[in-house]
Design a protein around this nucleic acid. Structure first.
Length: 169
DNA sequence: CGACTTTGACCTGCGC
DNA sequence: GCGCAGGTCAAAGTCG
């Protein structure tokens, strides 16, 4: 379960979907009965260590900061959000979290070997940008808008290749 | 025994 | 109209 500061009530699950054989879970916001926010959680088809959580709608109540990012709340199965902004601050009705669970950057090393390390600076740049909430929020919006404008694109998988320690700083 | 989770069934929208 | 896939419901199971 992805911990993002809100409480979620699971109301359904699909074993498999066409675009991703991993189970997809459906959650509603449990903090307010009238809150219209829904959350879909599914593991990445390309890398099962990545959990993709998709938010739909806006919270009509305050953001509960308790439990958010407390070390005790980060279990081995828990994920780290790369965006520490409350979801209510984002204007779009659909928000996407990219969560990495104990991720080992194997794909980065593979790429380095293939590319001869030529993209190392780009990766460092991406790494620093991902630590900046002011970058993440518009990035998430741009991704969503991109998806909305390309209806043939189903699902979203991004392998950022960042170790958990980097994101939790 | 109540709260929470699981899971199969059902509903709905969409493409052919 | 039919079939499929996504989304939701609700009964059954589990746990404290």
């Amino acid at each position: 379960m992805v911990k993002d500061g809100y409480e979620w009530k699971k109301y359904g699950q699909k074993k498999t979907t066409k675009d991703n054989p991993s189970p997809r879970a459906y959650y509603k916001c449990a903090l307010a009965p009238t809150c219209p926010v829904k959350k879909k959680v599914q593991r990445s088809i390309q890398d099962k260590s990545i959990v993709v959580a998709t938010y739909e709608g806006k919270h009509n109540h305050g953001f509960p900061f308790r439990d958010l990012f407390k070390p005790s709340s980060v279990t081995p199965e828990a994920s780290i959000m790369d965006n520490d902004l409350p979801m209510t601050n984002i204007s779009n009705d659909i928000n996407i979290d990219l969560c990495l669970c104990n991720r080992v950057p194997t794909d980065v090393t593979d790429k380095q070997q293939k590319d001869g390390g030529s993209n190392m600076k780009a990766l460092e740049c991406i790494s620093s940008l991902l630590k900046d909430p002011n970058f993440i929020a518009p990035l998430a919006e741009a991704v969503v808008l991109s998806i909305n404008s390309q209806s043939e694109q189903v699902g979203l998988n991004l392998s950022l290749g960042l170790p958990q320690s980097d994101l939790s700083k």
